[in-house]
Amino acid sequence: MIIFQNVTKTYADNNVVALQDATFHIQKGEFVFIVGPSGAGKSTITKLMTCEELPDSGSIRVGEFNISKMAKQQIPYLRRSMGIIFQDFRLLPNKTVYENVSFAMEVIGASKKAIRRRVPDVLSMVNLTSKARSYPHQLSGGEQQRVGIARALANTPHLIIADEPTGNLDNETAWEIMSILDHINKQGTTVVMVTHAQNIVDDMQKRVISIEDGLVKSDQQGGYSYVTSI
């Protein structure tokens, strides 16, 4: 599903080595946490996966896309194969919950019929059917993030990339979000989640890739504390 092979990325403007010779493989259907301190290079990994940044060396593969050799015109199609969830939700304030989700389908040219069929499905997956006509400012943080998840799911991606999805939420709401992500993963979708939340990583007992100073420090099954204690 995802292959990082000796990937190095340096940001030209400040000469910071964000990722150094990183190698890991993520299989289809896995749930993987990417952890590490701020500035360790976690976000660089998601930016490389979505082709917002290109690696200096090494090769990256996501599904059928060879990112390091891909033509620019292919980028939109790469992104259609994944759903991205953001820490700050990134909802459009002037659109309703329903419209925020349908927007993701509209902009890739989905038919009206397909939109009418799919949007209620994903809204019920995240328990927001009753809020379809609400605007983001009428929702709690957790509800807003659920809209973000519904939007990420709208185009039936094989891969979900979640960048600190619980970062702005209280503990209880964070667990709500985690259980939705876990449920999505159990249905076969690969989930890659970047996070700081030690308690979540510990309790979920999934595969954890730990990054520090741009290097992959460890990559194993288990919790956050276990990884950092090595």
Binding site: P76, I84, R90, F103, V107, R151
Partner: peptide, 17 residues
């Protein structure tokens, strides 16, 4: 700007944007 960022992230083509 925000709308365009979201469009890009869900895979709208340049022509579409």
């Amino acid at each position: 700007k925000k709308e365009i960022e979201i469009m890009k992230s869900v895979g709208a083509t340049n022509a579409f944007i």
